[in-house]
Design a protein around this nucleic acid. Structure first.
Length: 308
DNA sequence: TAATAACCTCGCAA
DNA sequence: ATTGCGAGGTTAT
């Protein structure tokens, strides 16, 4: 027997572009079909998002009812942030302005802390396709199966589950040298030694210290987790792309340390540094497929600002 | 303190 | 075909 498929309408009331928000390297499990419908696994649910007219989004989900999921989506996409206001505050920067113009509806996400930590531990010296593949394989192997109108997905496995799996099993699944890091992080979260969820309410410095106490988690990965899951919009993750941007567009000295670059970002963008970072990162990542061509992008001399 | 391998694995050049 | 190299880092020496 078939039942009518319940659908709810999610009306963000804010700029929201699913494509840039869901493909800009913050998350790894959303898939889009030819019709532009996005399918993901959110918490314990399979979720399907279908862009409708007027910026509305049709939501299907299971097992949670779609109207409940629609509310959760407001949190996931940080609809509480006034994106236009954020953009006005950081658009005086020419490069950030380019990013805003190119991706006007790109949101910074508020994802689940554990899944985000696990995914970014796996991101070390890797690339987006491989991260996605490994995350998906972990879900496929250890996650709970959930179905939506015949389509099946799996939830991201709990820390308990991955801790139980252990390093060797995680290696078998392609985690490589990150396997012990992931296993240890899972154990720390499962045991309560690392109160991940509580870090949402903690100051940046405290969250940073807690996260980097884990093996395999340094400044960059900690910043990703803080920005994409722990409500630290001031976090400014500096990967090799961001580093290249800082050096080539902003004149960051080659010998500058991570902490110095972070301080600079704060002096420039303050609490909006994370949004500025996302604009810059995705701009450079999209505009220069091969790493080598980035050197050809030089700002006009007049746009350069002296390094403080 | 600062530089430099080493670490898993995979996909894609050469 | 086979090999070498780098990919959204971090740790150990």
């Amino acid at each position: 027997m078939t039942t009518a498929l319940p659908t709810a309408l999610f009306i963000p009331g804010e700029p929201l572009d699913l494509t840039s928000s869901l493909t800009s390297g913050q998350c790894f499990r959303w898939r889009v079909d030819d019709a532009g419908r996005w399918t993901g696994a959110l918490g314990g649910d399979v979720v399907r998002l279908s862009p409708a007219s007027g910026g509305a989004i049709a939501v299907e989900s299971a097992p949670s009812p779609p109207d409940e999921t629609a509310k959760a989506l407001a949190g996931y996409f940080r609809i509480g942030d006034d994106l236009a206001a954020v953009q006005r505050r950081i658009c005086w920067d020419e490069r950030v302005s380019e990013g805003v113009a190119a991706y006007p509806g790109m949101r910074v996400l508020r994802q689940e802390p554990w899944e985000t930590l696990a995914a970014f531990i796996l991101s070390s010296t890797s690339n987006m396709p491989r991260i996605s593949r490994t995350v998906e394989l972990l879900a496929e192997t250890f996650g709970e199966r959930v179905t939506l109108n015949g389509a099946a997905r799996r939830t991201f496995p709990s820390p308990e589950r991955l801790a139980e799996a252990g390093e060797s099993r995680l290696r078998e699944l392609g985690c490589g040298f990150r396997a012990p890091y992931l296993a240890e992080a899972a154990a720390a979260v499962a045991s309560g030694a690392l109160p991940l969820d509580a870090l949402r309410g903690a100051p940046y410095a405290d969250a940073l210290a807690a996260l980097t106490s884990l093996r395999g988690v340094g400044d960059k990965i900690a910043d990703c987790v803080m920005l994409f899951a722990l409500d630290k919009t001031e976090a400014f993750p500096i990967d090799r792309w961001a580093l290249k941007v800082l050096r080539e567009w902003y004149g960051l000295p080659v010998n500058a340390k991570y902490a110095e670059a972070r301080e600079w970002a704060w002096s420039r963008f303050g609490a909006d540094a994370g949004y500025a970072n996302q604009c810059l990162f995705w701009l450079v990542r999209q505009s220069t497929r091969p790493l080598r061509s980035i050197a050809t992008i030089e700002p006009p001399q007049a746009e350069r600002r002296a390094w403080p």
